[in-house]
Nucleic acid binder design. Structure first.
Lengths: 138, 138
DNA sequence: CCTTGAACCTCTAGTCACTAGAGACATTAC
DNA sequence: GTAATGTCTCTAGTGACTAGAGGTTCAAGG
């Protein structure tokens, strides 16, 4: 059995975040010492590692909730789990696509001005003021 | 002179968002009718277009504030503007990089399970539970 | 056993950029 | 004149935390 600080060190999840996950129902309510401090065991550590890993991959708290539910019922179909993962993947791909468009536009705009002039002549500012100066939709 | 709803239509920025921008100081306080409704002119339209364009490109409200300040002083050096744009570009590039790593990992994980089995055997869930199943850091 | 200092507790409020809703007033079209 | 639509302010909610206040508990050293 170890403290919340120890759990935090082992998982690299900050202490207030652990408490937050408990409040959100991702972690079961921890056992307490007689002095009301949380104590965790291996199961708690594994659960939190799962959560952290999923968060790192960008899954929402809600998605993680569903994934945990499935994990707790190993006999159920895992279709929902693959659905969640697939939709997260699509999400990530969509974000990449959008960001790449932005990247192109921003880099074009940035190149247009070396920062040595005066803002009345600045291509960065002109581009922002006038969407027609953009090469593509974003 | 036109109403906030009209401005909203022309810029595709929602009415409450326009009011929010005003509150944040991105838009000057609008003139009002005798009945206290906001009225806008061409200048207001241009300013909001600028803001929307910058937001679309991912600039923060704070960054936009600085950009607007520069825009209002056409005699000042535009170094700050190019700095803001460059740092935004770096930001976008960093995000793309991270998302690409996630994409690879997620797609690998997703492929590992077709959703037809039972969650006890699901590779998606197993991967999330055990970081060692990952091929790279993320 | 006592003290000290770090770690822990709960609670509230703040972050960012909006969005939603309530309840009241203004404008416009017919 | 009336009805429908638009607008006003204000408060509160979103997601996933983060920060801080003010108080309690724990572990180690003396």
């Amino acid at each position: 059995m170890f403290s919340i600080g120890e759990l935090s060190k082992r998982t690299k999840v900050k202490v207030p975040t652990i408490r937050y996950y408990e409040e959100m129902g991702l972690l079961p309510e921890a056992e307490r010492t007689s002095g009301n401090q949380r104590r965790y065991d291996k199961a708690g550590l594994e659960r939190l590692s799962f959560i952290r890993h999923a968060r790192d991959l960008g899954f929402s708290i809600e998605a993680i909730s569903s994934l945990i539910e499935l994990q707790e019922h190993p006999d159920r179909s895992c279709e929902a789990a693959t659905d969640i993962a697939t939709s997260q993947l699509e999400d990530v791909r969509a974000k990449i696509k959008r960001l790449k468009t932005l990247e192109k536009e921003l880099s074009r705009i940035s190149k247009g001005c070396d920062g040595e002039g005066v803002s009345g002549d600045c291509y960065v500012l002109a581009s922002l003021a006038d969407h027609n100066l953009c090469e593509r939709e974003h």
